[in-house]
């Protein structure tokens, strides 16, 4: 229990998020109405994805510095979970956009940026498939991982702010928290970010353990 307390925390927070997120009070906003509850699921998924990508990058850098194949494995599993979170984030956003912006995939710079960054990370997985030698694969894909993150940042944080975007906080729009969210919503929103990030780390940990066991079995 000493080392696993954060898993219990993740379960508690996510249970709280789902229940209180669905039945808790929310402010009445025009157009948004009840769909504002999606902010508890859609936005934390993106925060989680960015954290997972950053962790993947940290392990890629660690691999390049130390050359331990274990770091490479952790790095790729974090990238895998980040892609999963990205797809879930797209799906939740798509449902939300369908009801508030009128179509499931409006031509929005942030959406397109995310689609391109998914391409980047899938290209990373394809690149890994192109090598047989483990050390070589690890080193070259670590280099690409770092490059991918460096491109991801302008795609998500800089370009959407320079053009017109439907997203809050972009293209001159005020950020969500400023007007639409009240303190009751923040009581769910902030824990939800921590909860989803912990869930991502947990999934990654299980995958890494599975991979390690498979390696032992092969030997």
């Amino acid at each position: 229990m000493k080392t696993n307390w954060w898993k219990a925390l993740a379960v508690i927070i996510l249970t709280y998020t789902i229940f209180w997120g669905l039945i808790g009070p929310t402010p009445r906003q025009p157009i948004l109405n009840e769909s504002i509850r999606n902010v508890y699921f859609h936005v934390p998924l993106w925060f989680g994805m960015i954290t997972l990508m950053l962790t993947s990058l940290v392990f890629a850098v660690r691999y390049l510095r130390k050359g331990d194949l274990g770091d490479d494995m952790v790095s790729v599993e974090f990238a895998n979970t980040a892609i999963l979170f990205g797809i879930l984030g797209c799906a939740t956003g798509s449902i939300w956009a369908n009801y508030t912006w009128g179509e499931p995939w409006p031509n929005d710079p942030k959406l397109n940026g995310v689609a391109v960054s998914m391409l980047l990370y899938i290209a990373y997985l394809v690149l890994r498939g192109a090598f047989d030698d483990e050390q070589r694969r690890a080193r070259i894909s670590a280099v690409y991982n770092i490059l991918a993150f460096a491109v991801f940042i302008p795609l998500i944080f800089i370009l959407p702010r320079q053009t017109d975007s439907l997203h809050p906080g972009n293209g001159g729009n005020p950020a969500f928290g400023k007007y639409d969210m009240n303190s009751q919503m923040r009581m769910v929103f902030y824990p939800a970010i921590i909860g989803f990030t912990l869930l991502g780390v947990w999934i990654t940990q299980l995958r890494v353990r599975l991979r390690r066991l498979q390696l032992v079995m092969e030997e």
């Binding site: 391409l119 980047l120 290209a123 394809v126 192109a130 090598f131 370009l159």
Partner: peptide, 18 residues
Amino acid sequence: AENSATLMAILSFPVMLP
């Protein structure tokens, strides 16, 4: 990598996009 022509395209297009 061996199959470098395809790989070059898929690796570079998203990188060039911004």
